[in-house]
């Protein structure tokens, strides 16, 4: 199952110009599946970076606009798109000029694989 998903993520990675990596983690930033190119910044793949999203999305959900779904962070040379699929978090890292809309559209193509992964993460002690 995970091999299929990894293969699928690799294919998605090739579809979007400037997309460096797709990582599926739990809310603590522990990677479950990841597909990474050599251009991805190693610092952004560390759990302490990814787990910040868990807190940020919780706080953003308190703004009275409903549950927070996505956080897009633009940096000088990278963009980080994180999607709330709690207990899972999908993180995309791309170049600053990468097609954000195209990355957001990938969500629907990853969704079908998440149900099985969710149960794995929930069952984990």
């Amino acid at each position: 199952m995970v091999d299929d998903l990894r293969k699928h993520l690799n294919q998605l990675l090739e579809k979007v110009n400037g997309l460096h990596c797709i990582v599926i983690t739990d809310r603590d930033g522990v990677p479950v599946v990841r597909s990474v190119t050599e251009k991805a910044p190693q610092l952004a793949l560390k759990p302490n970076f990814i787990s910040t999203f868990g807190m940020a999305t919780d706080q953003a959900s308190k703004l009275g606009l409903g549950k927070n779904k996505t956080i897009i962070s633009m940096y000088s040379s990278y963009q980080v798109i994180q999607i709330n699929k709690l207990p899972l978090v999908i993180t995309f890292i791309g170049s600053d000029n990468c097609n954000t809309g195209h990355i957001l559209a990938l969500e629907s193509q990853i969704d079908p694989y998440l149900k099985d992964l969710e149960s794995v993460v929930l069952d984990a002690p």
Partner: peptide, 12 residues
């Protein structure tokens, strides 16, 4: 709305 990204990618 979701097709915006793909439309831009096609034109690129």
């Amino acid at each position: 709305v979701d097709s915006a990204g793909i439309i831009v990618a096609i034109s690129e």
